[in-house]
């Protein structure tokens, strides 16, 4: 069963003015689509990998044979990271986390402002291409991390519940070199209900 490009859960223009429609369309139909295509090419002919879920592939990615390891890390990670990214954003979102997620953030970071500061710094300081993450680690604790390129937190045993793409393709058409402005604007798109859903699922 080949992997497929998921549809966006909203229109390409839904995240404007924070993320423009042209960026969303290229990001989804070109960049994400290429990761899906190349992931399918990489695992084709490897019968032992055929039935595995994306999460299973990534959890074991570092132990794959040399011939396909980096392709699965790059393109499998690219597929998983973007699939999460689309879901944790939405039209007219933003605001503050609530309920159990807000409790978890307070317990882990002291308060929401401190969490935001740490997450934004992780996104701003990632040199080159990569991602900032809020993950539930193996012990069930919330942590802010950052990964290079398309490396997935799943490879480290983490469950990502919020991710921010800081590859230049995610923001260059609208923000050019101003990555901090993109990061600040992106908070206005965060779908905290979805993040809370992922947080609860990570603890089951």
């Amino acid at each position: 069963m080949a992997f497929e490009l998921p549809s966006l859960p909203y229109d390409y223009s839904a995240l404007e003015p924070h993320i423009d429609a042209r960026t969303m369309e290229i990001h989804h139909t070109k960049h994400h689509n290429t990761y899906v295509t190349k992931l399918n090419e990489a695992i084709q002919g490897h019968a032992n990998l055929a039935g595995k879920s994306l999460e299973e592939l990534l959890a074991g990615a570092r132990n794959l044979p040399d011939s396909i390891r980096q392709a699965v890390i790059n393109h499998g990670g690219g597929h998983a990271n973007h699939t999460l990214f689309w879901q944790i954003m939405g039209k007219g979102k933003g605001g503050e986390p609530a309920g159990v997620l807000a409790d978890g953030i307070q317990a882990a970071f002291g308060n929401v402002a401190e969490f935001r500061a740490q997450f934004s710094a992780a996104a701003a300081n990632r040199f080159g291409s990569g991602w900032a993450w809020l993950v539930v680690d193996k012990s069930g604790k919330l942590r802010v991390t950052s990964t290079a390129n398309q490396d997935s937190p799943i490879m480290d045993g983490h469950k990502p519940i919020l991710g921010l793409d800081v590859w230049e393709h995610a923001y260059y058409l609208h923000y050019q070199n101003r990555r901090p402005d993109y990061i600040a604007a992106w908070w206005n798109t965060v779908n905290w209900d979805k993040v809370t859903e992922f947080y609860k699922a990570a603890h089951q």
């Binding site: 290229i26 070109k30 960049h31 290429t34 080159g128 291409s129 590859w167 230049e168 393709h169 260059y172 058409l173 050019q176 070199n177």
Partner: peptide, 12 residues
């Protein structure tokens, strides 16, 4: 081949 070198002119 940083994306900033070509993204305005060539996109992906």
């Amino acid at each position: 081949v940083w994306e900033h070198a070509y993204y305005i002119d060539y996109r992906n």
